[in-house]
Design a protein around this nucleic acid. Structure first.
Lengths: 214, 214
DNA sequence: AATTCTATAATTTTCGAAGATTATTATTGT
DNA sequence: ACAATAATAATCTTCGAAAATTATAGAATT
């Protein structure tokens, strides 16, 4: 793996996880020290992230972490619902036994981690992402999966602060995931879509309530 | 405008227009001579284009123009229909007078160019793009517009070869655009969607028939 | 003749410095 | 004191060379 690739992975992770505040400048000298590499690989990574809308660039003024706002989040949420319901529909229409098995496996692994007290939160986020991608993986469309990844990263930035300041968890998220998986495996498309939709709308509600109206 | 931005614009244009064959390697020494700049700005542009899926990169083996295939095209087409019908619906629901005026203006400018004998084909492509974007511009979703731009570029690569080898034009494309604009301005959502859909499906048919099944 | 090994060449990737631009501070004048 | 200007510093951008890797060609071996 080249330095530019490492820079991309590290920067992306740190931005999505909120290590840098939104709109804060990403100065090359700082990044160079933080990640232990020269300017070139960092600039390449920043350019990739710019195309993904995680950072913004202004000519001769460098890069910044993209801004966050409630409007931006609502936009990403709506786009997610559009993309994911369609991808889920197609995935359920086309998925084979191996796909079903991967959904079961992802759900199982996710549950193990949610129930593990004091478990690694990074691992939990990874397994959550894996489960949601597994649901859509058989849709057969590279473009839809690409958009899913973009939107997942964009909304993850909002989800994480909400998770950390999570008050009394009124939701049984394991149960929600389980219900979605059940409907998916039963090939009950309308129910699966409705459950997935509810799942996201509830998360959105939690994020809205925990977010200052910017 | 920085050199890296110029490199991005030039490279993107040349790739979309097919100046480089699909899968052909994009060697830095060649590009450096072609565009008259050093490696750094070129690599930055290539990284951005990689994130847009117009080029692919392999560690330590450089960049290539993305491959083309019928399957890829069909995938992009389906994604386009999903994104654009939704964006059109919202645009028609939210668009104000200024938006309507911009649609009329874009259609007018497009017609002028299609009727101009021996006109600049670059200008025609630009106005075509402008018209289709104008239709969606009022949708209010940055994400949907972003996806539209991605998919437009991805499918443009297929459309251009088909246009050049255009046989007897059985279609009256001006009329198709006009009909779409009429339905849009009349706020007849179902009709507008159907017409836009037909418009793309006809273009797709033309491309399929002009393309070796890869 | 085919295969492995070696030497060479071509290419990508990275660094460090120079050039160019923007931001900040100091200075001057009113 | 305030505004405008100049000097300074900080930062981004670009280049050219060095380092690292991959591809190619030729020689040696089986």
């Amino acid at each position: 793996m080249t330095l530019a690739e490492k820079a991309y992975v590290s920067l992306r992770k740190d931005i999505v996880e909120g290590c840098f505040a939104p709109e804060s400048p990403l100065r090359l000298a700082d990044l160079s020290e933080r990640y232990g590499m020269g300017f070139s690989p960092l600039r390449e990574a920043l350019n990739r992230l710019q195309a993904e809308r995680l950072v913004t660039a202004e000519s001769l003024r460098g890069f910044r972490v993209s801004a966050q706002s409630l409007a931006e989040f609502e936009d990403a949420l709506q786009a997610r619902l559009l993309i994911e319901t369609e991808a889920l529909r197609q995935s359920m229409a086309k998925g084979d036994d191996a796909w079903e098995a991967s959904v079961v496996a992802a759900l199982y692994a996710l549950r193990l981690q949610t129930r593990r007290q004091g478990g690694d939160v990074d691992e939990l986020k990874l397994r959550h992402h894996t489960f949601h991608r597994a649901l859509l993986a058989a849709c057969g469309s590279d473009w839809l999966l690409d958009f899913f990844e973009r939107l997942y990263a964009a909304t993850e930035r909002y989800r994480i602060p909400a998770l950390l300041s999570a008050g009394p968890q009124k939701r049984d998220i394991d149960a929600e995931h389980g219900a979605i998986a059940d409907a998916v495996l039963a090939r009950d498309t309308p129910r699966a879509e409705a459950l997935l939709r509810d799942h996201y709308l509830r998360t959105a509600e939690a994020i809205r309530s925990g977010m200052a109206p910017a």
